[in-house]
Design a protein around this nucleic acid. Structure first.
Lengths: 252, 252
DNA sequence: GATCATAGTCGTCTGCCTGACGATAAACAC
DNA sequence: GTGTTTATCGTCAGGCAGACGACTATGATC
C-alpha cells in the first residue's frame, strides 16, 4: 500500500441531499433547478461542495439548513423536540458523472415533516417539492402537463436509492415518525406509511401493531379532530428506534 | 448552488476494505500491517487511492484482487461460479481522520469463503486474518499474548460498521452463502450464522427454515461427510436474494 | 462387530403475530 | 336525526418460530 500524498489524483467532494417528505398523500422530494451548465435549467437534487474543514455529516446538515431551513434532529439535545432525520445514503463516484471534472458525491437522506414552501437560497421559484414518481418518470409529463426532463447528473439513481432506503427502513425502525409533526395521530402515521409504500393499509391492524409495539408511540394525553371524524389520540415518537418484529410491507 | 470548479478544496479519495470471512468458527477480517507513517507498524484495513479513471466499485474490486486474489462475484456472469460479495459500506470523511491531508475514504464490505493465506502484495507477514473481536478490542491481548494496538486511523469504526452490516444483512438476505464454498451443507451454513452472530442456533429449526424458504438453497444431489457424523446433503445458493420472512437473530 | 459420539433430518406442540373483517364510538355536515 | 368520516376494540383462522423429542447414518473406539 504505497501512499504518496503528493501523487493522489485531484477529486472534488460534494454532498447531495435526498430530502423526502409526505405532502397530500404523496412521497415528495426536494428538487432545485440548476442555474448554470451543465444541465442548466434541469431539476437536480440540492447539494454542494464539502468545505475544507467540515465533516461530511456537517456539510450535509449545512446544506439542509441552507435549502430548507430545517435543523437536524440531534438525539443528544432532548429539548430540541423535533427536526429532520439525516443519514448518509451512499457515495457516487463514476468518473463521468460530472462532465467537468472528477466529482465524488456523498449522498445523504433526509426525512422531514410536511413543510411550508422550500427556499432555494431565497429563490423559491428554483426549488420545489415534487412527487418522487414524477421526478423519476423518464420523459413523462408533470401534473401541469409540462414535459419533465430527467434529473441532472446521476440524481435519478441517487433519488431512487434514497426512496428505496426510506421504504425499507420504515419497515424495521420508527423512522416514519420523522415524516410527522411532533404530535400526530395513528391515522396520520398510517397515511405516512401508505404514501411511502404506495399501498393501502388496514387501519385496524395498523392501529393494533403500532400501539402494541412497546416504545414506538407515547400518548401525550391530547386528542385531535383535525382529520375529521372521531377524535383521535395524539402521540409522540417513543424511544424505540428498532421495531421488532418489523412492520411488514404488503406483497405487491 | 454556485459551482465553481476551480475553487473546490482538494481531496484525496481512497477505498478501504472490510474483508470478512469465517475461519475456525470465528468471524475474521483481513488486516494489513502499515509499513510507513502515520501509524507505522500498526494494523489497518487494506485500501488505497482511487485512480483517476476508475469507478469506486472498480477501485474496491481492484484492491480486493491485489490483497487477496479474490475475484468479485458478478451475477451477470453465470459461468463464474463463485467469488466474493462486494458492496459499498459507507464513506468516512472527518477532516482529521488522516493527519497528513484531507482524505475521504469510501469503505466497502467484502464477504468471502474461507481462504488460504492472505497475500499483502506478496508479503504474507504483513497481512493476516484476525478475529474481529480481537481487532476491535482496545488495548487487549491477541491470541499469542502479544499486546494489540487499536487499528490505524478510524479503521476500528469502519470495521465495526462493516461487521454490523454483515450481521444484519444475513438476517434478511441469502448473503451468508457468500461465506461458504460453492457447495456446502446446511450445517456449514448454520455455523456461518453462528460465527457471524456469535450465538448458537437450534440445528433443527435452522434446517427447517433454510430448506423451507423457496429459492434459498438448491440441492446438488451430492452428499458429504466432511464434518463427521451422518452424511449431509450438499446445496448451492439459490437465486433468492431477499429472505421473506427473514431469519431472526435471537435476542441477547 | 458392538458401542459410542457426532451430525443430520423429520415431527410435534404451543404461543405469538398477521391478515381479514365485524362492530362500536365520537365527531361533523346537512 | 341521518349520513359520513375516522378511530378504536374484538374475533378468528393461518403461518411461523422456539423448544424439544425421535430417528438415521456415518466414523471412532473398544
Amino acid at each position: 500500500m504505497p501512499y504518496d500524498p503528493s501523487a493522489f489524483p485531484p477529486f472534488a467532494v460534494t454532498v447531495d441531499l435526498v430530502v423526502l417528505t409526505v405532502r397530500r398523500h404523496a412521497l415528495c422530494a426536494l428538487a432545485v433547478r440548476r442555474g448554470e451548465p451543465p444541465f442548466q435549467g434541469r431539476w437536480a437534487l440540492p447539494g454542494g461542495f464539502v468545505r475544507a474543514d467540515e465533516d461530511l455529516a456537517q456539510a450535509a446538515a449545512r446544506e439542509l439548513v441552507e435549502e430548507t431551513g430545517l435543523r437536524v434532529h440531534d438525539p443528544a439535545i432532548p429539548a430540541q423536540d423535533h427536526g429532520a432525520h439525516l443519514e448518509q445514503l451512499a457515495t457516487y463516484g463514476d468518473p463521468k458523472r460530472d462532465p467537468r471534472m472528477r466529482v465524488v458525491s456523498v449522498a445523504h437522506l433526509a426525512l422531514a415533516p410536511d413543510l411550508p414552501a422550500p427556499r432555494a437560497g431565497g429563490d423559491a421559484s428554483n426549488a420545489r417539492w415534487a412527487p418522487v414518481d414524477e421526478l423519476l418518470e423518464q420523459g413523462g409529463y408533470g401534473r401541469d402537463g409540462e414535459p419533465v426532463a430527467p434529473l441532472a447528473f446521476d440524481h435519478a439513481q441517487i433519488l431512487s436509492d434514497g426512496v428505496e432506503r426510506a421504504r425499507s427502513k420504515i419497515e424495521y425502525s420508527s423512522l416514519a415518525t420523522a415524516f410527522c409533526p411532533p404530535e400526530f395521530t395513528v391515522g396520520e402515521l398510517r397515511r405516512v406509511y401508505e404514501a411511502v409504500w404506495g399501498v393501502a393499509l388496514d387501519p385496524r391492524n395498523f392501529h393494533r401493531k403500532v400501539t402494541g409495539t412497546p416504545g414506538f408511540l407515547v400518548p401525550t394525553g391530547g386528542t385531535t379532530t383535525r382529520q375529521g371524524g372521531r377524535p383521535a389520540q395524539l402521540f409522540r415518537a417513543g424511544g424505540a428506534t428498532l421495531l421488532n418484529p418489523p412492520m411488514l410491507r404488503p406483497e405487491v
